[in-house]
């Protein structure tokens, strides 16, 4: 039976679907007996989602868009 430490080491590959069948069974056997590790996986997954959803919404502010357009118009090379 693997311990929590090994479980967390295997977590990344488990979620990527990269574990061998043997390791995957060992991990799932551990989960069946260890609610804290299930909570750990759930919160590990949620962390990725929360951070992605938060940081993805950083759009360019309109004032910067205007400045970038002016910059591009001024600096783009002349059409041949």
């Amino acid at each position: 039976m693997i311990c929590c430490k090994e479980c967390i080491e295997l977590l990344y590959s488990y979620l990527e679907g990269e574990l061998s069948a043997e390791n995957e069974t060992a991990l799932e056997d551990h989960f069946a007996d260890c609610p804290p590790c299930i909570a750990f996986v759930n919160t590990y997954r949620s962390t990725t989602l929360l951070c992605k959803n938060t940081l993805k919404t950083n759009d360019i502010p309109d004032t910067v868009k205007i400045k970038l357009k002016e910059f591009v118009d001024k600096n783009k090379p002349d059409v041949l």
Partner: peptide, 8 residues
């Protein structure tokens, strides 16, 4: 370990 994943 507390599971907060359902409450986000």
């Amino acid at each position: 370990i507390q599971d907060w994943s359902e409450n986000t």
